[in-house]
Amino acid sequence: MSHISTDKNKLLTRVRKVKGQSLALEKSLEGEPDCMQVLQQISAIKGAVNGLMKEVLEGHVREHLGAADITQQQRQAEVEQVITILKSYLK
Rank of each mutant, 00 (worst) to 15 (best):
N50Q: 12
L52F: 12
M36W: 11
K17V: 12
G47K: 13
Q74T: 15
V38L: 09
E78C: 05
L86T: 07
L23C: 04
E32P: 02
D34M: 12
A24S: 11
G47H: 11
Q21K: 03
E32F: 11
L25D: 05
T71L: 04
K10N: 10
M1V: 08
I4W: 08
S43I: 00
M53A: 07
G51Y: 01
T71H: 04
Q21N: 02
I4C: 06
Q72I: 01
S22H: 05
Q40C: 10
V18L: 08
E55R: 02
N9I: 05
I83F: 15
I42G: 03
L57G: 03
K91F: 01
Q21W: 02
V56D: 02
Q76I: 03
E26A: 14
I85D: 04
H3W: 08
Q40G: 12
E26L: 15
Q41F: 09
D69L: 00
A68S: 14
Q41R: 14
V18C: 09
V82Q: 13
V18P: 02
R62C: 03
V79N: 13
L25Q: 04
K27M: 07
A48M: 07
Q76V: 06
Q72V: 05
T71G: 05
L86M: 10
V79S: 11
V79I: 15
Q81G: 14
R75A: 04
L25K: 02
Y89S: 14
R16P: 01
K46S: 15
Q74W: 08
K87R: 15
Q40W: 10
M1S: 10
G66T: 07
M36F: 13
I4K: 03
L25P: 02
A68L: 12
V38W: 05
L52R: 04
A48K: 05
L65E: 03
Q73W: 00
K46Y: 14
D7F: 00
V18Q: 06
Q73G: 00
G31N: 13
K54D: 13
Q37A: 14
K17I: 12
V61W: 02
V82W: 11
K10H: 10
D7M: 03
E78Q: 13
V82S: 13
I70K: 00
Q73I: 01
E32W: 10
E30Q: 15
C35V: 13
R75W: 06
I42E: 14
R62D: 09
K91S: 04
Q40I: 08
L12D: 08
D69S: 06
L65M: 05
K10F: 05
C35Y: 11
E26G: 11
E78H: 13
E80P: 01
H3P: 00
L57A: 09
R75V: 01
S5L: 13
L57F: 08
Q37H: 11
D34Q: 14
V15K: 07
